[in-house]
Design a protein around this nucleic acid. Sequence first.
DNA 1: AAAAATAAGTGTTAATTTGACACTAATTAT
DNA 2: ATAATTAGTGTCAAATTAACACTTATTTTT
Lengths: 231, 231
Amino acid sequence: MTLDFYKKNKKILLAVDCIIFGFNKEELEILLIQRDFEPEKGKWSLMGGFVEEKESPSESAQRVLKSLTGLDDIYMEQFAVFGNPDREPQERVVSLCYFALINTEILSTDYKAKWFKLDKCPPLIFDHNEMVVEAHNKLKKKAALYPILFELLSDKFTIPQITLLYEAVYENQLDKRNFTRKLLASKLLIKLNEKDKENSKKGAYYYKVDKTVYKEKIISFLNFLPGWYEE
Amino acid sequence: MTLDFYKKNKKILLAVDCIIFGFNKEELEILLIQRDFEPEKGKWSLMGGFVEEKESPSESAQRVLKSLTGLDDIYMEQFAVFGNPDREPQERVVSLCYFALINTEILSTDYKAKWFKLDKCPPLIFDHNEMVVEAHNKLKKKAALYPILFELLSDKFTIPQITLLYEAVYENQLDKRNFTRKLLASKLLIKLNEKDKENSKKGAYYYKVDKTVYKEKIISFLNFLPGWYEE
DNA sequence: AAAAATAAGTGTTAATTTGACACTAATTAT
DNA sequence: ATAATTAGTGTCAAATTAACACTTATTTTT
């Protein structure tokens, strides 16, 4: 009886798919690959892979991410399961969806992945376009409460850069004065004695994240974006 | 080549486990079953089952819930994946975790499940105790933003009952005056011309949820619980 | 060297929301 | 009639919010 219980149940191919967000200083982007195998060879796709024998799903997601970007230690979160029996034509696959936030500057370019602006995402295989939409929605909700968007920026960044980032994620204009005030009130940022002179004549001071505060900081970020969630 | 790609990957037993929350007018409870099969026969366990061939994981979770409670149409949310390779001794099983909110009054009692107070939960099989803790944490976060806790109450309820419910979920005392004010300001409640006289001499007015508002209503519930998330 | 151009950075105010706080009202039981 | 019990309500000071536009620092142009 012991093993019968398990044996009578069908096993399933279990995949992970990663929506990898990046920020190009102006727009939110996602990293896609062109499939080089059947089915759907040549089509654009999220990065994915199967959960292997000796790894947990989050380890699979990390492996996939590493194999495609060379990056370790990336912010990643499981946010959905796509598992309709017929979502892939060849074989039943249940997919665990993760979104990841990476700083695109760190990423070397010799991987065959390509960045696409979120609003110019090509048609993707299977239900991957739906996954992207859900990931973006989840990102908006999460980032309203937790300061995770800093994962998309370099170690040092300017206030105008953060503002552009939030405007990109929420597809909305922000009041610069109010936003800056709230940012600084969060006590999350440390002002550096150095300016970014690339993007303006006056130059904007660099800041970095106070890591000790960052770990504890949640929810206080709420209402950074007055009203975005009510629309 | 087509199918080789899939074939070389190992399939995995995919389970769903449900943390079913209920509210007994005083405390938050979860519904558990005593396993009547090996392994771990006789031990307490979450309700679970395997994802079958023709169903999506959320359908599996609904089926499990229905088979154990007779209930349909229950609020349910996937909140975690437990998938360490060795989390079950006999066989590798990846578990998709759902939490559900049900009104215990509707539930008939001839199912062999049993309610346990959340803080008096017995030792459970495998990693189920961890799942319960994560579910409770997730519930707290979600319910701070969305009015989902009404799913735990009957169609009509009193303000004192809601207050007790929030106090139970957040394990904290609430200021009755401020909480009531915010509740009513949410425009989510419709006052009925009827009182509950069971629980007090004066009697407390019943309210019901305004379903049209309920569907849209999110986040405005935030800060119902000043400071709970900062501790 | 003066003027123009550009983007950074900053302050005020009125309205709203918050949290802290304690008494009155309605009913039943004695 | 009195006591007991729980429901229900109001005020105020402090903090937070959103709406709003000018000054500053620097480089480029003339």
